[in-house]
Design a protein around this nucleic acid. Structure first.
Lengths: 354, 354
DNA sequence: CAATTTTTGGCAACCGGTTGACAAGCGGCA
DNA sequence: TGCCGCTTGTCAACCGGTTGCCAAAAATTG
């Protein structure tokens, strides 16, 4: 069946060294045209432009296509049109669970609209990211950048070429999807204030991270509002390990409550503080960001400011796809999604006399 | 009509009948040929077949290409050759952390060898999986199926079309990458026996899961070897929630040690048991599988049989790429990777009088 | 230095769709 | 009945590379 035994002219000992795609793959529009008794271009029109051919012919062609199990060859289609029905998603680090839901959200939206998602990882490097993005540009209709590390200008340059949507960062002139941190943060800080905390530390993320800055700004202003003292600390990297390493600084700061750039830092920090004998939350409260997978596995479970990451992913994909469809006006609008406090056990009333 | 009024160059009767999008995109081999003063086909050869043109011409062409920032058009290349430099990875569920490392491993190997990874999610459904796989087949050079849910026959059918590699399952006639569970399991069971356990429960995963069966077989035979009683329990779904739901059955079984199909089940089970007042590991020991991200966030941290998931992903990609390169003989070999026990706090000496 | 072999580069035919231009078919209307 | 405009299908020219075949050029050899 896969064997080209069909028009087997002779029992040739044909040295079919070249394996692969001889007798197999899908029919072409030419085959359909032959079966349906029309011209190939008519087939092409029937299959892409609805209403361009008569209902009769349409049916004829569709039947033939179904019979032959026709599937368009995406490459042949992409060549003249430039459209690939594919878009790219670049994340800083595939292993960072923050991106899982983004990937999932974008992926779901993609398949729902008959697009294919191509995923890439920039290994947290701005240059890798740009290289990857450039390479991708050749093969996709649009690009989603999740928490990009590269310059605003580079992003805009890419956006000039093809539609680009940015997640977790705001870039002028480019559509963005960003969680609005204020609601979640003010809930968190109010909760801390209500529990008797006076001094709050913020453990920052990577210096290029726009989102880290946003969060720090949010923390600072929420603290001002609640008349708490806020202090900013740096971290080496936004991982569990980085969180552990920041424990000393946190202790030294004298803060009784900590918000960290993300949940990974929070988890590492909590592990280290607990290992040092501190009680969480009795002696120190810890609040993370993102509500990643596993944030509730810890003891106590982590209080965190949740960003609707899945929504970000699907929102970005929707914006992109709308743009490609010609819908979505030329408005490089920013889509803001709400954040909310997820109150769990790692934050609470300050008990220690310290 | 589909063209928006973007290039609104007045009502110019511009004779620019040709492609609208000429202003930008990349140079073609024809441009290079013109600059270098050679024939397009020579350019093509210089750029793909090394050693087919003289060093002099080669240099000339490369310079021209660099100057024009040439990038091959993957579609134009894919059309005549059929090669796409892309492969697909289908996982049952993107949000299941088991796959994170597989994705990462495969992705890293892909980019290292100048391939692009296309990711898809089958939503744990055999039919979605097959549909997705079929659709992907048109656009990729090969496919990796991680923990596939579809029939062996469907997999073999796909494999007849293009190279396929399966992870976490063994399918006759198709190259597979599977963790060899025995070492890890026997370590785990020996450890349990040494800690005074007499009866061990195994909480199984989805019934179609080949790996779940493997693990149960491993547990049973290891228990036999160590003269422990082994009992198998079912779970509703292989998630944290499913683990919680299985707690009652576990208690009813009278086992003092539990191995679960995966870490998610183990974590859910532990949460529920602890909520019911049991001490882990004093009264009951829990051992998971996979060592997923977050397995060490729990209190106590989860003892688990680690599969080198990243290695599985990169191993599968390597096999696939070797096949595509013509290397890797026609041997549909199975690559076995070792598992090992990661001893943490959730398993230990049985203390309770019960 | 001529004859022969080996390189090297050019020509042209694809790969499988898309699309503008155009002609034939057809009913409507005067 | 004849003219018109609209629908429907056909032709052919692409899109940007790849590759078999062949001839010209260069290198090797007698």
């Amino acid at each position: 069946m896969t064997e080209p035994a069909k028009p087997d002219v002779a029992a040739t000992p044909a040295p079919v060294k070249k394996h692969a795609r001889d007798g197999k793959s899908s029919a072409t529009i030419y085959d359909i045209a032959k079966v349906a008794g029309v011209n190939p271009s008519t087939v092409s029109r029937a299959l892409s432009k609805p209403g361009r051919v008569s209902a009769k012919t349409q049916k004829l062609i569709e039947d033939a296509a179904a019979e032959l199990h026709y599937q368009v060859n995406p490459f042949a289609r992409a060549l003249p049109t430039g459209r690939t029905s594919t878009f790219g998603l670049i994340v800083a680090d595939i292993t960072n669970p923050t991106f899982f839901d983004i990937i999932r959200g974008a992926g779901a939206t993609a398949t729902a609209r008959d697009y294919t998602l191509v995923l890439a990882d920039s290994a947290e490097s701005a240059v890798t990211e740009l290289t990857t993005a450039r390479r991708m540009m050749a093969t996709v209709d649009g690009l989603i950048l999740a928490s990009p590390r590269m310059d605003d200008d580079d992003i805009r340059a890419l956006a000039r070429d093809k539609p680009v949507v940015v997640i977790n960062r705001e870039v002028d002139g480019v559509p963005c999807v960003v969680p609005d941190v204020n609601k979640g943060i003010s809930e968190a800080v109010r909760s801390l204030a209500a529990n008797g905390h006076k001094k709050v530390a913020y453990v920052a993320g990577p210096s290029q991270s726009w989102m880290s800055t946003q969060r720090w700004d949010g923390v600072r202003s929420a603290c001002e509002w609640s008349r708490l003292e806020a202090v900013r600390l740096e971290s080496s990297k936004p991982t569990v390990d980085g969180g552990r390493q920041s424990a000393r600084e946190v202790l030294a700061s004298g803060a009784t409550a900590v918000l960290t750039y993300n949940d990974l830092l929070a988890i590492g920090l909590m592990q280290e503080l607990q290992a040092a004998g501190l009680m969480v939350p009795d002696q120190i409260s810890i609040v993370g960001f993102d509500d990643i997978f596993g944030a509730d596995f810890t003891t106590p479970p982590l209080t965190t400011v949740r960003s609707p990451l899945g929504e970000c992913g699907s929102g970005a994909a929707t914006i992109l796809l709308d743009h490609l469809a010609g819908t979505g006006g030329e408005t490089p609008e920013t889509l803001r999604v709400e954040t909310e406090l997820v109150l769990r056990g790692s934050s609470g009333r300050l008990i220690a006399a310290k």
